[in-house]
Design a protein around this nucleic acid. Structure first.
Length: 289
DNA sequence: CACTTGACCTGTCCGC
DNA sequence: TGCGGACAGGTCAAGT
């Protein structure tokens, strides 16, 4: 799934839907999806009140009144879908069919709240997880120690952006922008979209990128991510928000998954290639080596 | 260190 | 219709 705009969309939804609710029960399939001890679950999850829902990079944190948090990574196919107690089997709910189908085959973790509502963590490919950890320990997780700055933060400047790349001078710009220790939250969709916006070929070595190009990339990355959040994220395959609804950014995508279609800037046919081990979409006229 | 590749999983799509 | 292979929004652990 889920890159920064999708995770942020889920965060905003959950912040409205579950803050203040009391956890009454939990269930899961494999320990891989929910690697927590029974003792911790009983002591710090059951009976806890949800106090906040936060995000850092592509990681979600559901804070609890016990000073523990549920830390969630959706990886490629994870979903967090909330179903209100009164919505189940209710007629006229916008997501009737999806909501009433849960839990389903991909459901890995279920959280039940005291008011009968539920939160489902679904994950087709089982890469994601939900970890119960002391809130104060989260910043000391290896991932949190190495992850780069939030690209949409007001304090994040173009100079900081360009500086972050200097450590990765000998690789290509696509691998570097996907590196979470350079900048947080960029994944395959927004890497391709922003490189197209800045007219930079994804195979260009970082060391050859000019200050003007870094500035264009910085501006475009932020624009494209802000637009995507506004559109509720990208539903390329199975991403949905906390209410089970798809996002519409893919309707606005300029190159991602648009191979064979004309470039919206010059009309040249968009091509798909492989860079940094990932499917990569470019306009061969706008983005040259 | 910086960099690349394979592994983790299931489902879907495409060519034979 | 069936089957094999490639591929899919992300990160890690290994290898060079």
């Amino acid at each position: 799934m889920p890159e920064l705009p999708e995770v942020e969309t889920v965060r905003r939804g959950l912040a409205n839907l579950i803050v203040g609710k009391v956890v009454s029960a939990t269930d899961h399939d494999t320990p891989k999806s929910f690697p927590n001890t029974e003792t911790d679950v009983r002591s710090f999850l059951i009976g806890a009140n949800v106090t906040a829902v936060r995000r850092r990079a592509k990681v979600l944190m559901i804070d609890l009144s016990t000073n523990y948090s549920l830390v969630v990574h959706l990886k490629m196919t994870g979903q967090l879908v909330y179903v209100g107690g009164d919505e189940r089997f209710g007629a006229g709910h916008p997501n009737d069919s999806l909501v009433n189908a849960l839990p389903d085959k991909s459901t890995r973790v279920t959280l039940s709240f005291a008011d009968e509502s539920q939160l489902f963590f679904n994950d087709q490919r089982k890469f994601g997880w939900v970890k119960l950890l002391p809130t104060a320990e989260i910043p000391r997780l290896p991932f949190m120690l190495k992850v780069g700055p939030e690209p949409l933060a007001e304090t994040f400047t173009v100079d900081m952006f360009a500086e972050r790349f200097q450590r990765r001078g000998r690789t290509n710009i696509k691998a570097a922008i996907l590196d979470q220790s350079v900048v947080a939250g960029v994944g395959n969709i927004y890497a391709d979209e922003s490189l197209w916006g800045a007219k930079i070929h994804p195979k260009r070595l970082v060391a050859t990128i000019t200050p003007e190009e870094f500035e264009a990339l910085y501006t475009d990355l932020r624009e494209v991510m802000n637009l995507s959040i506004e559109k509720g994220g990208s539903s390329n395959r199975n991403y949905v928000n906390a209410e089970g609804k798809r996002g519409s950014y893919m309707d606005f995508a300029r190159v991602f998954r648009r191979e064979g279609l004309p470039c919206p800037r010059c009309g040249t046919t968009i091509e798909k290639l492989r860079v940094a081990g990932r499917g990569t979409h470019i306009c061969p006229h706008c983005q040259t080596l």
